[in-house]
Nucleic acid binder design. Structure first.
Lengths: 335, 335
DNA sequence: CTGAAAGCGCTAACAA
DNA sequence: TTGTTAGCGCTTTCAG
């Protein structure tokens, strides 16, 4: 079928062991022999089988990246960071989406990826996800972004602090009726939204401002969800004058909704997002900027370090989000 | 080290072959035996080694997706489509970025992925890329998006027609000095930009309109590049009154540039993008919409069909982009 | 510095 | 229906 070490060995007139050593650049191979082997391999168009090597060495040269979604900008940005860093060390990347809960027969990541990767990079699975528990049970190094499981290396952002800053900004701009567009769950302490909720409540409680249920809506972290949520908020008897969306993408949808109602973000309703994507600049959206690319890169470096590749890496990194104010929270700014 | 079929076999009191069959749900296994095996496997926390299975069967259950970038929206959208479709058939996805030409030691995809995937899905490599040639040389099924290599299945969009529509729209809105923000190369017939260039020229030539070199700038397909390109165009003695950017992301940057100069897209300078991302709606950007998610899904189905999984699939699909006009090409529309 | 031989964990013939 | 026996292609002791 395909050419193997044996074929190369035969053509080069050496043993398979020598071929293996020569191809991997072992110093213990004579120069002339090495040249012969390389030549033979080249001539035959030899491409090694990672599977066989993996079976033999126990290392696959591949890490699994587990993410809930690929079509969300924050994950895309992290993935880009991860990919770039892994590529530098010639480590391959296997992508695994846990996807919607709507998936009828989800195959848990550890079942699909175990033994085919050397480690896992987990992006924001809920801290109490059974998948995560299974992964941590495996004897493979794991790093994660998001709510940290105890004893696991990873990168975290200060969601609570970031949400507090965003809320505070709205309050500073004079808003008393503050609304929130969150993600999916408001009450579950093990999801990311909860940290942000706490940040919001930290500020509102301190200021004595209420957050009635009518003033918060889920947006599912997607544009369309943010759009709908904002329309619903606007339809309240006492609509919020300032709104904090838990992601920029939902905020984009909210901007859309405002415009449809003839309202201008900033002037008529203040709006702040979370994530700090590139496009937010042209939308004029205030936001909490999170350096996702760098987070991804840091995760990859932690993983590489755990695999004995690349340099050392800090075990636990906390990244603060940075407030960026734009027109959407400034009544006087022309968009 | 880790538990193998042998361990399971021993505990269940059967042979390894039976374990293998039971675990894969072969009908030729007695119900009681199967139960024993499943129980033993579960009790031991057995997770099979894909590497070993791959070595034995020659199938990895994994396809390689090759893309130049992960941080570009068009690729992200295709990747999402691919991933979704592959997941449905429990096929894993290995991501390989060819990346910038600036990479010092790029490892060609076939070297890294061969023998560890059952097939390749190639997203827009230049038609004459050496990497692509190597991949096609391998005895693995390959499908691709973009300029089609002869005899290869895949999905294509009508770039030339789409570009013509975009250009025509600017002309229809009365613009005579039309500018173009392209990607990287203007003269290379084997890159995607060339098709679009032809579409532009089809229209301009028919109308007898010139496209002097001063009226086109590269934007590298990124926002920042589009921003710079637009500034440069505006600094010409005779700046264009209507601009066609070869991607929405570059158009976003162009919008930014216009605003910085106190200009309003649509009213002062007409602008049309290409790709049709979600965010273009809130930016009010006219664009040629390309259904990338569906393209990705179609590619995945073609690949699955080639692997004998899923249903049959058309070998060659051509998707037309759809014109969406918004405020950025309408002088009278308020943004 | 090089070769022979024994696996890595699984699957697939072939027997029974 | 189940077990036996070879491998898949590579790496890696251990000799030489």
């Amino acid at each position: 079928m395909s050419v193997t070490v044996r074929d190369v060995a035969r053509l080069a007139g050496v043993s398979t062991a020598t071929v293996s050593r020569a191809l991997r650049g072992f110093p213990t191979v004579g120069e002339d022999i090495r040249a012969q082997v390389l030549d033979a391999a080249d001539r035959l168009g030899y491409v090694g089988s990672h599977a066989a090597a993996a079976l033999s060495t126990g290392r696959t040269g591949c890490v699994g990246v587990i993410t809930p979604f690929v079509n969300r900008l924050a994950f895309q940005r992290m993935l880009a960071g991860v990919e770039h860093e892994l590529r530098a060390e010639r480590v391959d990347l296997m992508l695994h989406c846990t996807g919607d809960p709507s998936d009828p027969h989800p195959v848990p990541p550890h079942k699909r990826l175990a033994r085919r990767v050397d480690g896992f990079i987990v992006l924001s699975l809920s801290a109490e996800s059974p998948d995560l528990a299974e992964i941590l049970k495996l004897p493979l190094p794991t790093v994660m972004f998001g709510p940290q499981a105890p004893g696991v290396a990873g990168v975290e952002t200060d969601d609570r602090g970031g949400a507090a800053s965003a809320t505070q900004l709205l309050a500073d701009r004079g808003h008393r009726r503050i609304g929130v567009i969150y993600g999916r769950e408001w009450d579950n302490p093990s999801v990311l939204e909860y940290q942000r909720r706490q940040g919001v409540e930290d500020v509102l409680e301190r200021l004595g401002l209420p957050l009635p249920e009518e003033r918060r809506r889920p947006g599912g972290f997607i544009m369309r969800g943010g759009h709908r949520a904002m329309l619903e908020l606007l339809d309240r008897p006492e609509p919020p004058t300032g709104v904090f969306a838990f992601s920029d993408e939902m905020a984009y949808g909210a901007v859309q909704a405002l415009r449809e109602r003839g309202l201008t973000p900033g002037r008529d309703v203040a709006l702040i997002g979370y994530d700090g994507h590139e496009m937010s600049d042209i939308v004029g959206l205030s936001t909490m900027h999170v350096p996702f690319e760098q987070i991804g890169a840091a995760l990859a470096r932690q993983m590489l370090a755990a695999l004995g590749l690349g340099g050392p890496a800090e075990a636990h990194i906390i990244v603060p989000p940075v407030l960026i104010e734009r027109a959407s929270t400034r009544p006087d700014a022309a968009l």
